[in-house]
């Protein structure tokens, strides 16, 4: 039965660091919020398709062949890109800065 060896002392040191609690709570809250937004957008779209197709099949403007569903579909694609961008921006700056401090303090 193999397991990864653990440096308990260092881990405890990190867990006791208030910055670690700050990082994990902030980052997890952020990723869960964004995940929920993503899933609500997507399953909202699926629910409309399942129960109210006519909303998406409506004309985009008077006399147009283009329907409301087209910009909606494209916007959902763009929202996926946008949401990942928002996460990466904050994670690679704010969260990574905090993380660097935690690691630095762990080695002290």
């Amino acid at each position: 039965m193999t397991r990864v060896p653990v440096d308990h002392e260092r881990n405890q040191h990190i867990i006791n660091n208030p910055k670690y609690a700050e990082l994990t709570s902030k980052r997890n809250a952020f990723s869960i919020t964004l995940s929920v937004i993503t899933l609500v957008i997507y399953f909202g779209f699926i629910f409309v398709i399942a129960y109210h197709k006519e909303i998406l099949s409506a004309q985009l403007f008077e006399g147009s062949v283009t329907t409301v569903g087209l910009p909606v579909g494209v916007l959902i694609i763009l929202s996926a890109i946008l949401l990942t961008g928002i996460y990466v921006r904050r994670a690679n700056s704010e969260f990574d800065d905090l993380n660097r401090e935690i690691i630095k303090e762990a080695h002290e």
Binding site: S31, I32, L34, S35, I76, I77, A80, T84, Y87, V88
Partner: peptide
């Protein structure tokens, strides 16, 4: 297409 794409943000988060 939308369904295939929406998996990606979830993987990231």
């Amino acid at each position: 297409s939308v369904g295939f794409l929406v998996g990606w943000p979830v993987i990231l988060f």
